[in-house]
């Protein structure tokens, strides 16, 4: 593997920081409204991030997979 492509693949890892920012700063989501099917924002936001975080991890997995 050449070093430029290694560097490019490392950049993908930045995606993994996003879930930390989205979930560890409660002011982003500590509220009741808007509700979704009766569920307060606080709850459905965090459920949504379970899914987004898994997708981000999957993206990083496929993007950085060594092609050997």
């Amino acid at each position: 593997m050449t070093s430029p492509s290694k560097k490019a693949s490392r950049l993908w890892y930045i995606l993994l920081l996003i879930p930390f920012i989205a979930t560890l700063w409660p002011p982003f989501y500590a509220g009741n409204e808007p509700r979704l099917a009766g569920i307060p924002y606080f709850y459905w936001y965090q459920f949504l991030w379970v899914i987004i975080s898994a997708i981000l991890t999957a993206i990083v997995y496929f993007a950085t997979k060594s092609k050997t």
Binding site: L16, L17, P19, F20, T23, L24, Q46, W49, V50, S53, A54, L56, T57, V60, Y61
Partner: peptide, 11 residues
Amino acid sequence: PYTIIIYPFVF
């Protein structure tokens, strides 16, 4: 949130 951020860390 605890079990969300575990996995990027584990990865």
